[in-house]
């Protein structure tokens, strides 16, 4: 990569780097710095050299896997040995997956969870961020720490902890609920899909919220303090100030935060794998769990089917990403317009 095509054209001159006078426009290549200053040939070599490790990682772990997933999805492949030995089934895997009731359910569950969790975590974290920035708040450091600490724990470990806390037999949460006579019977929080997903949405919010509080605080701090002071002089109360000044001004940032929130929730796996293993039955399957189940949890690995599911999932994310990307770039333009 670093052997630039220029090597053949220009004579080697190592001394050029220490003599700025020698820099002259190079024909054909038009390699310049951001400011438009033509690049030295040696620097161009360095640039390509600096990009090589990145290109290797990016092509190997981002681009190539996607190509291969699409390729796998056309074969009846078990993940062992050569793909060429597997039989080509055309769109057979897609046909199977889209008609598979379990996949349909996984797909619907993924959307349901994503939307539900986003609707809980965004407003709650926004409220807490607003409160944390109030000048009259005491013990600010303590509160910030409390809401941030769970983020340090891996979701998988949080899920295991909650598995015990929620246990209907002697889990602490049920003990507290019955002990304090809030409910007469212990609740099985993972008994069926609706309650299991509600539980997962709440406890995953518990784990992730610190991150969103920080996002919102960063957004809120961009609003110029002088605007609030002006509004106060005009007699606007706290709610009016939030509604008419804060919200319109942070809308561009809010779009970015919400988009990241959606895309991240879409990848739910750990919570389901640990708390319900997709059960009872297959009622709490999500797409990632379906892929895992098909590829790694059966005696004969079904990489083909799993890849078809993964491809459909990737397409969905791509569509969301494109839509979101459009909205975000419009939001970014607005941000520049507002100067925040």
């Amino acid at each position: 990569m670093n052997s630039s095509p220029l090597r053949d054209v220009a004579p080697p001159n190592g001394g050029a780097t220490s003599r700025p006078g020698r820099r002259r426009p190079l024909p054909r290549l038009r390699a310049t710095t951001l400011a438009g200053v033509p690049m030295r040939r040696r620097d161009l070599g360095w640039v390509y050299l600096a990009l090589v490790p990145f290109l290797i990682l990016f092509l190997a772990f981002t681009v190539w896997p996607l190509v291969r997933t699409v390729q796998f999805s056309f074969y009846d492949y078990d993940g062992i040995g050569d793909l060429a030995d597997a039989s080509l089934v055309g769109l057979g895997n897609f046909d199977f997956v889209t008609k598979d009731a379990v996949f349909q359910l996984s797909y619907a569950n993924t959307w349901l969870f994503t939307i539900g969790q986003t609707l809980i975590k965004l407003p709650l974290s926004f409220l807490i961020a607003v409160l944390l920035l109030q000048p009259w708040l005491r013990m600010r450091g303590f509160f910030r720490m409390v809401f941030f600490l769970p983020w340090l724990m891996p979701p998988a470990i949080v899920a295991m902890v909650f598995y015990y806390l929620l246990n209907p037999n002697n889990g602490a949460i049920n003990e507290a609920l019955t002990g304090l006579h809030i409910t007469s019977e212990p609740i099985d929080f993972l008994a069926s899909a609706p309650i299991a997903f509600s539980t997962i949405a709440l406890i995953s919010t518990w784990q992730i919220m610190g991150q969103y509080v920080i996002f919102w605080m960063a957004a809120l701090q961009l609003v110029p303090q002088s605007l609030y002071e002006a509004a106060e002089v005009d007699g606007a109360n706290g709610w009016r100030r939030t509604w008419y000044i804060t919200l319109p001004l942070i809308r561009p940032m809010a779009v970015i935060i919400a988009s990241l929130g959606l895309i991240w929730s879409f990848n739910i796996f750990d919570w389901v794998q640990i708390l319900t293993s997709g059960g009872p039955g297959t009622s709490t399957f999500v797409v990632n769990y379906y892929v895992y189940d098909k590829a790694f949890a059966h005696a004969r690995a079904q990489f083909g089917t799993a890849s078809a599911a993964a491809t459909l999932f990737g397409l969905t994310v791509l569509v969301i990403y494109t839509v979101v990307g459009r909205v975000v770039s419009r939001a970014q333009a607005k941000r520049r317009e507002y100067g925040v």
Binding site: F61, T62, W64, P65, L66, V67, R68, T69, F72, G79, I263, F266, N267, F269, V287, N288, V291, Y292, A295, F303, A306, S307, A310, T311, F313, G314, V317, L318, Y321
Partner: peptide
């Protein structure tokens, strides 16, 4: 934004 699930098998 390629999801992990989409790329994990080829990886």
């Amino acid at each position: 934004f390629i999801p992990t699930a989409t790329s994990i098998l080829p990886i």
